[in-house]
Amino acid sequence: MSRLVSWVNMRGVSFLFGFNPRDFRPAQAKVNKIRGIALARRSQVADFIRIKPCLEFPASEIYPRTMDTSPANPGFRVAALYRFCRLERFEELRAPLAAFCCSRGIKGTLLLAAEGINGTVAGREQAISELIAWLEAMPELTGLEVKYSVAAEMPFHRMKVRLKREIVTMGVEGIDPKHGAGAYVAPSDWNALIADPETIVIDTRNDYEVSIGTFQGAVDPRTKSFREFPQWVASHRDQLEGRKVAMFCTGGIRCEKATAYVKSLGLEEVFHLKGGILKYLEEVPAEESLWQGECFVFDERVSVSHGLEVGQSELCRACRHPLTAEERLSPKFSAGVSCPHCHDQRSDEDRARYAERQRQVEMAEKRGLRHIGS
Rank of each mutant, 00 (worst) to 15 (best):
G213L: 08
E173V: 00
V201R: 04
Q231N: 12
D176M: 06
R158G: 15
W190D: 02
P177N: 03
E153F: 04
E166C: 05
G182L: 09
A183R: 12
K178V: 15
A152I: 08
V150E: 08
H157A: 13
F156T: 00
V168E: 09
S235F: 03
S188G: 03
G213I: 01
P221G: 04
V146E: 05
R165F: 02
Y208T: 06
S211L: 09
R158F: 07
L240P: 01
F215D: 04
I175L: 02
S211H: 13
F229R: 01
E241G: 05
A234K: 15
T204F: 01
T214G: 00
V161Q: 10
I175W: 00
T214W: 00
I212D: 06
G217P: 03
V161D: 10
D207M: 02
R205H: 11
Y148N: 03
F215E: 03
V201N: 03
R158Y: 10
E198N: 12
E198G: 10
S211V: 02
F229H: 04
Q216M: 14
V201F: 04
G180M: 06
I202N: 07
L163P: 06
P177K: 10
H157S: 08
Q231S: 15
D238T: 06
R205F: 01
V172P: 08
V150G: 00
R222S: 14
V185I: 15
D189H: 14
I167W: 10
T214I: 01
G171D: 07
